[in-house]
Each structure stands twice: as C-alpha cells, then as structure tokens.
Write a protein that binds this DNA or RNA. Structure first.
Length: 258
DNA sequence: GCCCAGGAGCCCG
DNA sequence: CGGGCTCATGGG
C-alpha cells in the first residue's frame, strides 16, 4: 500500500497550507519597495504574475536559483531590480561581466550572467506577450534550446511565469517519490513528469501549489536525513533501505539522490 | 572547516 | 544514455 500522488498533495496542503508561489519580490510600479519575501508572498492568489515585468522576474529567478538557496538567488534578483535590469532591453545592453558582478551572491555568477543574457536575447526576438498565446509544445523546445535553460528551469518558466499547465520536477520531487515508493531511483525527468501529468488534474493552480508544497516539505521535513516523526506522510511512506540513511555517508547520499 | 542549496553543460566511455 | 567534473556564494 502506497500513497497516490493525489493523496500526497492533499496531505501536504493540509499540513502546510497554500504556499503563494512564485515568491515575487515587491517592486510595484514607480515607487518600488524592494523587500524580498522568501515564502507566502501571495498564498492562494494565482492571479500573479500579471505583468510582463513580473513574468521576467520569475524567469530570471529560475536561472538564479539553479542549485542555489533562494536566499542567495533573491539577493541577486534584488541587485538586478535596483539597477532596472528586470527589463529585457536593459539586460541586453548590459555586459555579461557587469551582470556577473550584480548576481554574484547567487553563485556560479559567470555562468548565470551568460545564461541571463541568453534568455534576454531570446525574449527580444520572442516577446513574452507572444509566448503567452502559444502552446507548451511550441514554446518548450525553444526555451530548452537556450544555453542555461535545462528541464527544471524551462518548466518553471512555463508554469510559474507563463502559467502553462506543466509540472516542475526537481531533486526534491524525485527524492520524495522515491522515498514513498512511487518511482524507481533511476527514473528520468520525463518519466516523473509524465506520472504527474497522468495522475494530477492538468491545472496550473494545482501544479503550482503541488511543486511549492514539495519544496516546503523537503526543506523542512524530508531532508537528506529525514525527520520522519513529524512527517505528514509517515503512515504510508515506504521504509525503503535507502530512504532514510542513518548517517549522511557519501555512499548513502549518492544512492539516495540517484 | 564542512555540507549543501529548487541545475546545467560538457566530456568521455 | 550516464557518470563525473565544473561552476561559486552564503548560511547553518
């Protein structure tokens, strides 16, 4: 007996409540109050983003957050915002070297600066406005072709910036599903995503909330060494050999992440 | 000091 | 296809 994806979603939502993703920084209108929020920016409100600037901010956040804590990524995002660089043309007009210094706090800053520049040049020829009216099948290959936009970043852009119904798979998702016995540890990104698309109603709101809940759960409970006592899923979570390493040995971690 | 964070690309068998 | 390596800061 294992939990279904729908049951996991319900349990996580009941435990943690609506997460309010994507965590947009507050930079409204002409008088920006640049104050970052880590979580709960707009819980239960799926109207956002509702401007192209907010959509761009999410896309940039996706790149800046690659293998990096959101706190560090957000600092970089605030630097961009303070320099009026949540703007496609301004990004293009800024050198990669200068961008790199601004996004320094997010780590991998040289790579990320180049990736942001790549994204901006793509958006120059493919305006966000035009992307909104095209299908996932049309846009996804184009985004994936941008150097620096891999599977997760691509789908984060599609779901959270462009509000298209596609599920975002990340390392947390894989860990959670492996531990709950829903997938094998060698499942590919596409296999895991297909599972969500098959089992979960194809709703932008639900995909948004579910992914955010998985991050919340994995950051606070289903850690590398999981805190199973307080886990909302503990009743039916599979006690697989690799699911709860006693100690974070290199071997056990490697196996766990595979 | 060590570990890790919402990855991605490249290289090599 | 897949493992291994590289990229890098800041917080616990």
């Amino acid at each position: 007996m294992t939990l279904s994806l729908v049951e996991i979603y319900k349990s996580l939502l009941k435990r943690y409540g609506p997460q309010g993703w994507w965590p947009l920084i507050a930079h409204a209108g002409t008088n920006p109050t640049l104050r970052g929020r880590l979580t709960g920016y707009h819980p239960g409100n799926f109207e956002l983003p509702n401007t192209e600037k907010q959509m761009l901010e999410i896309m940039l956040g996706g790149i800046l957050a690659q293998n990096t804590s959101w706190v560090n990524a957000e600092k970089a995002l605030l630097q961009l915002a303070q320099n009026d660089l949540i703007d496609i043309q301004n990004l293009i007009d800024t050198s990669v070297e200068q961008l790199a210094q601004l996004v320094r706090s997010s780590g991998y800053y040289n790579q990320k600066a180049a990736r942001i520049h790549n994204l901006a040049r793509y958006l120059e020829s493919h305006p966000i406005r035009s992307l909104l009216s095209r299908t996932i099948a049309q846009v996804r290959p184009e985004l994936r072709a941008i150097k620096g936009v891999g599977n997760e970043t691509c789908d984060s852009i599609l779901l959270y910036a462009l509000k298209k119904p596609i599920f975002v798979v990340d390392a947390y998702t894989k860990k959670l599903l492996v531990r709950n016995g829903l997938i094998s540890a060698i499942s590919t990104y596409e296999e895991i995503q297909t599972l969500f698309h098959r089992e979960i109603p194809q709703s932008v709101e639900i995909y948004n909330e579910f992914h955010a809940l998985i991050v919340q759960h994995c950051v606070h409970c289903c850690l590398k060494v999981p805190l199973c006592d307080s886990c909302p899923l503990k009743e039916l979570c599979q006690k697989l050999p690799f699911s709860a390493p006693k100690r974070g040995t290199k071997r056990s971690i490697k196996k766990d992440q595979r």
